[in-house]
Amino acid sequence: MKIKVNFPEKCVKSPMLSEIILKTGILVSIVSSHVDSKGGEMILDILDSNYELVKESFESRGAFVSTFNAFIRRNEDECVDCGACISVCPSHVFGYSEDWSLTMDMQKCVRCALCIDMCPHQALALEETDLE
């Protein structure tokens, strides 16, 4: 599952993620990270079963954790179900259903945005997070 961690300004100098990884031994993948002196946000990919422990670990250190479901947005009025996006996605988010409609498996999305400039109909966009 993907989670969003918000770091308030006071937290940006502490190596919080490293501390938590070392202490709990939990493996995380960093999907994206935007942190500067005023605060920031990270999108992390973790195992569902580790959610409670990861949330507790961050929040006891002053950060905020929420589940994250904002990935790629498809404008269905513009999409013509061509499937141009399928071959450029490294995570196999896109596919076809039985009737050749485009399908999307959002859980696989890593927000790399490679699909966005492939779409000839400008039907794909990144869902904006707080900082973008």
């Binding site: 013509v80 179900d81 061509c82 499937g83 141009a84 996006c85 399928i86 071959s87 450029v88 009737d99 050749w100 409609s101 492939m118 000839p120």
Partner: peptide, 14 residues
């Protein structure tokens, strides 16, 4: 392996 993408729509062709 190379992934393939269709640039025309088979659904709409149908």
């Amino acid at each position: 392996e190379a992934a393939t993408s269709c640039m025309s729509s088979f659904k709409k062709s149908r």
